[in-house]
Design a protein around this nucleic acid. Structure first.
Lengths: 223, 223
DNA sequence: GATAGTTTCATACAACTGTTTGAATTGCAA
DNA sequence: TTGCAATTCAAACAGTTGTATGAAACTATC
């Protein structure tokens, strides 16, 4: 194993191309052209296209999860074993948002690749993705500790919504910019995280706080 | 132009396959096999694969927008020209959510096709999709009328978040089910809409303190 | 029933896909 | 240097893709 140069060139070219254009229309020939290596190098170093994608995904997935858990852990330590709900949610959505929309270019392609991977469900990734559930469960557990009075079902919905907002903001930032005619500042990543966390916290605590339960609102839809 | 049978068979088979498996791995041969027509029929009736996709998207896009605007209009008429913010958001996310997760199978594939189209950005669709902005602007305008004291930027973020939650709930309903181990009931579409609308309203009215909106909203729960 | 126009069909085509091959080149230890 | 394994390379492979073709089968009009 000499210099790894070819291997890493392929990895980073592939990641960038997949992040930019999706898995659908990026061919091995595109990748090797961008990496400036020979076509056969992919199969020589990775075995197959699918294994290349899988390696890319596994590496990044572990890194993202580690980053999230680090933030969660230090938040829990700071709170003596129980973190505030806002810190938990911040640990959940912060890394990806900063990664995708922050200034660091390398982290940006990495994070955008992960978004692609979570959207265009391509076979080699789908097989691995079940582990994500286990990862999210840790956050659900932290949230449960933080909000012991919150109903279980509300907790999952809150987690789900927080991820949804973060996700969609990354994926469709262009639409939001166009729609608001530049009013929504996507460069202010910290402000954006605050906003998402704040909405999520309110979604979670709004009902729990005002103790009184369902004044179920009239929903005349249905079929 | 005799019986349209072949044409419509292609359209509905294509829509179903694209909705189920995405644009990435559905070939013309898959479509004609499902529609039980000859391969050449696609090019004969539609010109090309891209034009078939475009026709599918335009048709459904117009239908969805019409449905949303109808709901919005009747909500505004009921409120004497100014609809409540919850009714506006309900008109925005309701049709798609009911379409995707409701019981009506035909509507379901139609709506799921639209979700696919909005995720996997395939060229023939990307060209058309700019019109969506104009459509959303109408909802932004209605929201502005409903919450005249709300800051413009908060308004756009609220609209964005509402769509994000609806969207992600449809796209990744499986993950939510697994994560919550069936606790989050995705069959209760009405309750889900309540929940999304309620969170969105709180996101909008919480920050803009002096709002006049009826904050008596509480989402109901299943079970 | 013959005719003209539309629609279907089997088949072929050219382009592109991921993968394989076997020879050429490299790097390094003896 | 020689020898040998690891790596690179150009070329070709088999399979799939969207599209085109020209003959056959229809349908309706006269």
């Amino acid at each position: 194993m000499a210099s790894d140069h070819t291997r890493t060139a392929i990895l980073s070219a592939a990641e960038r191309l997949y992040a930019d254009r999706g898995f659908g229309d990026v061919t091995l020939r595109d990748i090797v052209a961008a990496a400036d290596v020979n076509l056969a190098a992919v199969n020589y170093h990775f075995g197959s296209k699918d294994e290349l994608i899988a390696e890319l995904f596994v590496t990044r997935s572990l890194a993202t999860n580690r980053e999230r858990l680090n933030e969660l852990k230090s938040a829990e330590e700071a709170g003596g074993g129980r973190a505030g709900i806002d810190a938990i949610l911040r640990a959940l959505v912060g890394p990806t948002l900063r990664g995708c929309l922050g200034a660091d270019r390398e982290r940006s392609t990495a994070a955008r690749f992960m978004i692609r991977a979570s959207i265009e469900s391509v076979p080699p990734i789908r097989r691995i993705k079940n582990r994500e559930i286990d990862h999210l469960r840790k956050f659900a557990a932290a949230m449960r500790r933080s909000l012991p009075d919150c109903r279980e079902v509300d907790l999952y919905w809150g987690l789900h919504f927080a991820l949804a907002m973060a996700h969609q903001t990354i994926r469709d930032s262009e639409r939001l910019t166009k729609l608001s005619e530049g009013l929504c500042d996507l460069n202010d990543v910290a402000g954006m995280i605050d906003r998402i966390v704040s909405v999520s916290v309110r979604a979670l605590t709004g009902r729990a706080a005002q103790s009184k339960a369902p004044a179920r609102l009239v929903a005349r839809d249905a079929q």
